[in-house]
Design a protein around this nucleic acid. Structure first.
Lengths: 241, 241
DNA sequence: GGTGTCCGGCTAACATGCTAGGATGTTACA
DNA sequence: TGTAACATCCTAGCATGTTAGCCGGACACC
C-alpha cells in the first residue's frame, strides 16, 4: 500500500519543510504532535511520504520517545499509517475518511446547534455576531485565510457552547481529513460570500432560538463541501489512496 | 482533586484484582490497554484509586513502555487522570463526562439510524431481527448480562451499517463513561422488557425505512438512561468527582 | 530469462536508565 | 498547639540501548 511513488531524487524531506520548532505549548510530545500536524495539514509532508523518526528527532532536537508518542497519536487520528517494523507514512487522502469525517462532523454539529438554540445566552450571541462582522470584513478585503480561520472559529464556538469539550475535540479531529482536502481546492469564486450567507442563516435561527431552523441551516451549510471535494478526487487521483 | 479518600489499610490494589494477562491480541500496548480498560470498567480498579505503573508492570510481566502508552490512551479517553510528576489515578465518575458521552452517543446514533433507514439492505435487517429474537430469549430466561451484550451489539450494528468504522469506535469510547455508571445501577425491574420494546420500535421504523420515525424511536430509547444515572449520583456521591 | 533463497539494512516496539518536580511526613519554631 | 520550612520519596516524562521483523537486493539455481 505505501508504495514509493515517483520520488524526485531523494525520498527524504527536502530539508526545507521542517515543521517549525517549539512555538507550541504543553508537554514535549504535545508540541511535536502539533508541529507534525501542522506540517501534514498544509502538505509540507506530502500524502504518501515516508516519515523518518530519526530525521524528525534531530530536526526538532528531541529524542525518539516524544516523537513516537506524537506519531502514535497521529495514527489514531488516521493521519499517519504506521506499519510495524517497516515505517511510518503520511496517510493518503481517502474519500472514505473524508466522508466519515463529514458524517461525524455533521452529526455533532447538528446536535450541537439544536441544543445551543435552546440554551444560548446573550454573551454567546454577542460573540457569534462579532465573529460574523469580522467575516464580512474579510470578505470585503478578500482575506481568504483569515476568513477560513473565522469560519472554523464559528463552528468551534457553537460546539463549545454545549459545554462539551470532548465533543469539540472530536469534531475538530474528524474535520482534519475534510480540511486537508479542502486546502487543495482552489478557492471557488463566490464561495466565500455564499458561506457567509449560510453562516448568517444559522445565526438568524439561533437568534430566533429555533432549534429546527438552526438544524436545517447547519445541514444546508455542511452539505455544500462534499461535492466540491469529490471533484478533487478526480482531478488529483495521485493524492488519494 | 485526586485525594486519597478513605483508604482501607493499604491503598494499593489488593493483589487480587489483577487485570487478566494477555488473553487479548495485538501489540503489547494494545493488550495492556485492553486489560486495564476491563479492570476499570468493572470497577476492579475503583474510581479515584491510584494506578501504580510499577505494580502493573510486574503484575503483567512487561516493562513500563507499553504500560505508559496504555495509560496515555486511557487518559485520552478520560478514564484515567495523569498528573505529571505526581501519579495516575482512575477517573472518578463525573456527571459532566456522562452527559457528554450521552450527547456524543445520541448525536452519532441519531445520525446513523437516520442514514441507515435509507440505505439498509436485507442482510442488515436479517441480522437485526436475529438480534432481537435473542434479546427476547434473554428476557424470558432473565439472562441480564447476555441481554446487555446483545443491546450493545444492536447499537453497534446500526453504527457499523453506516460503513463508518471510526464513528463506531468513537461512539463506543463515548459510551464507556455512561456504561461504567450503568453497571453500578441495580437492575431495575421491568427495564429489560421496556428496552426490548424500545428496540422493537426502532426496528419497526427501520423495516419501514422511515428515517424520521427511526430517529424518534432512537431518541426516545436513549433518553431513558440519563435520569436513572442521575439518581445514582445522589445515592453514591463517593464515586463521583 | 525467470524464480526461489539468503543476507544486510532499516524500522517500530520494547526495556531500562536518568532527571526534574510535586506530594508527604517530620521537625523546628512561634 | 499550630504553622512553616525542610528532607525524603515517588512519579511522569524523556533519553537511550536492545530486540525482532519486514523490505529489497543479490545471487544461485532452474
Amino acid at each position: 500500500m505505501p508504495d514509493p511513488e515517483k520520488l524526485s531524487s531523494t525520498d527524504t524531506d527536502t530539508g526545507q519543510p521542517l515543521p517549525p520548532l517549539a512555538m507550541f505549548e504543553g508537554k514535549l510530545a504535545d508540541r511535536v504532535h502539533a508541529a507534525l500536524l501542522e506540517a501534514i495539514l498544509d502538505l509540507r509532508y506530502r500524502p504518501g511520504a515516508r516519515l523518518r523518526k530519526t530525521a524528525i528527532c534531530d530536526a526538532l532536537g528531541v529524542s525518539r520517545s516524544p516523537v513516537s508518542e506524537a506519531l502514535a497519536r497521529l495514527a489514531a487520528e488516521a493521519l499517519v499509517d504506521i506499519v510495524p517494523q517497516a515505517g511510518s507514512f503520511v496517510a493518503r487522502l481517502s474519500m472514505e475518511e473524508i466522508r466519515e469525517g463529514a458524517f461525524l462532523r455533521e452529526a455533532l454539529e447538528l446536535q450541537a446547534v439544536e441544543m445551543v438554540a435552546a440554551t444560548l445566552t446573550d454573551e454567546h450571541l454577542q460573540a457569534l455576531r462579532r465573529n460574523l462582522r469580522l467575516q464580512a470584513l474579510c470578505l470585503a478585503e478578500g482575506d481568504g485565510p483569515e476568513f477560513h480561520r473565522l469560519d472554523a472559529e464559528l463552528h468551534g464556538m457553537i460546539l463549545s457552547f454545549t459545554g462539551h469539550r470532548r465533543a469539540a475535540r472530536i469534531a475538530a479531529s474528524a474535520w482534519l481529513h475534510v480540511d486537508r482536502a479542502r486546502r487543495l481546492l482552489l478557492p471557488r469564486p463566490g464561495r466565500m460570500a455564499a458561506a457567509l450567507e449560510e453562516h448568517r442563516m444559522i445565526l438568524a435561527a439561533l437568534e430566533a432560538r429555533d432549534p429546527t431552523a438552526a438544524r436545517h441551516a447547519m445541514r444546508h451549510h455542511l452539505g455544500q463541501l462534499l461535492s466540491l471535494i469529490a471533484t478533487l478526487a478526480e482531478e488529483r487521483p495521485d493524492l488519494f489512496t
